[in-house]
Design a protein around this nucleic acid. Structure first.
Lengths: 204, 204
DNA sequence: CAGGACCCTTAACCTAGCTTAAGGAATAGC
DNA sequence: GCTATTCCTTAAGCTAGGTTAAGGGTCCTG
C-alpha cells in the first residue's frame, strides 16, 4: 500500500519519534483526511475571534502563533517549521473563539485536518487519540516551562536556553521574531547578542 | 440512591457548573473511587522527581502548586481552595517525573482519585472523559493567558487582574504567596498596594 | 537599476522592579 | 495565654530592560 505523495509520507513519519508509530492502514487514513494548502508570507491562517477549525502540519516554510496585547504589541507563543504541528489547541478542542493569530512568516505549504475529521480518526483508530493527547501534553509542559522561565530567568539566560532548545528555529527566524518570543525588545536582544559575542571572544 | 457523605456530594456537584452534569449512577461511581485524605499545613502532596499519581479535589483548606528555580526561589503556578481540582496534569497523564511541588498552605482535607481509577472511570463513563478534558483545556487556556500577561503587562495591572479574576484566592492567601504567583517580590507588591490605596483615596 | 520594506545595531536616557536591611503586626502551635 | 515564626511594610540604592532616535545593510519588486 503505497502513499500517494511525499508530503503525506511526511505526516505519518512524524509519529515515528516519541509517539506511537502508525501502521499502513492508519497512515492511509491519516493521508486521506489531510488537505494541502499553500499560504503566502504574511498571510493569516487564523485571526482572533475566529474558531480554530484545523490543525496544521508544516510541509515547507514557517508559521508563528502570536497574541496581540492591549498596547498593540505582538507576542509569539509558538513557531512551527517543517515537520511540526501547529494549532490553537484550546480554541480547536473547545470550539470557542480564539484569542490568537496564526501567520506565515515565509511562503508556506501545510497539510490541514479539520476538527470533524480528526474526531473521526480518534474514533476509528485509538492510536490517534493517544498521539494527539501526547501532543497537547507536550505543549502544556512547554507552556509551563516558559511561564516559569519568563518570571524567574533573566533575558540573557532565556536567550541562551532558546538557542539550545530550538536551534532549528533560531537559525532561520529574524531576531525581531525571537525577541517577540522571549518577551524583550529587538534592541535589547541585539545588546545581549553583542555581549555574548564579546564574552565568547574573551573565553573561547 | 443517596451519596454516603457530604464531601462526596461536593465532588459530583462540582460538575454542575460549566461541565456535563453527572447522573446518579455516575456520581456514585465517582464517589466510590474517591479517597479522603487529611494534610497538615506545610505538608507536601507531591515533590519534584516523583510521578504525580493522583488528582486532588479540595474539600476544605488550600493547596498550591509551585516550582523552584535554579536560584532556589519558589514560583506559584496554581492555587486550589474548596471545590477546586489540582494536579500536575502533565506528570499525571504522561506518568513522567514531575518538575513541581504541591503543598498545603493550610490544614487541608482532600479527596483523591488515582490514575488507574480515573482511566477506569473514563472507560466506563464517557462523560468523565469529556469533563476532565474540559478541565485540562481550561488549565491550558489559563496558562496561555498568564504567559501573555507576564510578558506584556506591568505588575500593577497584573495584580488588579488577579484580584478581579480570583477574588476568593486573594481574600485568603498571604501576600507572599500572591507575589510568588505574580512573579514579583513581596516588597514590591506591598508598594503596589500602597500606591493603589492612595490612588483610590484620591479618586473614590 | 532604483526604491521600498524589513531588519540589525548603537547609544543616551529613563523607569519598573529587585536587593538589602530593619522594625512592627499578626498568627500558629504549644 | 505565650512565644516563635511568619508576614507586612518602609526606604535607600541599584540593575535589567524599555524608549527613542538614528544610520546602515540586505533583499525583494517594479
Amino acid at each position: 500500500m503505497k502513499l500517494p505523495t511525499s508530503p503525506l509520507q511526511l505526516v505519518s513519519h512524524y509519529f515515528q519519534r516519541g509517539y506511537f508509530p502508525l501502521n499502513a492502514q492508519e497512515a492511509e487514513a491519516l493521508a486521506a483526511y489531510c488537505t494541502r494548502r499553500q499560504i503566502k508570507r504574511r498571510q493569516l491562517l487564523l485571526q482572533t475571534g475566529e474558531i480554530c477549525r484545523h490543525v496544521y502540519f508544516v510541509v515547507a516554510g514557517c508559521l508563528r502563533l502570536y497574541a496581540v496585547d492591549t498596547g498593540g504589541k505582538a507576542h509569539n507563543l509558538q513557531f512551527a517549521v517543517e515537520n511540526e504541528w501547529l494549532s490553537d489547541l484550546a480554541s480547536f478542542y473547545a470550539e470557542q473563539p480564539s484569542g490568537v493569530f496564526i501567520e506565515a512568516l515565509e511562503s508556506t505549504s501545510v497539510l490541514q485536518i479539520s476538527h470533524d475529521d480528526l474526531l473521526d480518526l480518534f474514533v476509528r483508530f485509538h492510536k490517534f487519540d493517544r498521539n494527539f493527547r501526547i501532543l497537547i501534553e507536550r505543549q502544556y509542559l512547554q507552556l509551563q516551562d516558559r511561564l516559569l522561565q519568563s518570571i524567574s530567568t533573566p533575558a540573557e539566560a532565556r536567550y541562551r536556553a532558546f538557542l539550545a532548545q530550538y536551534p532549528h528555529w533560531a537559525a532561520r527566524l529574524p531576531n525581531t521574531q525571537i525577541a517577540a518570543y522571549l518577551g524583550i525588545t529587538p534592541e535589547f536582544l541585539s545588546k545581549i547578542r553583542r555581549d555574548q559575542a564579546s564574552a565568547h571572544r574573551r573565553q573561547p
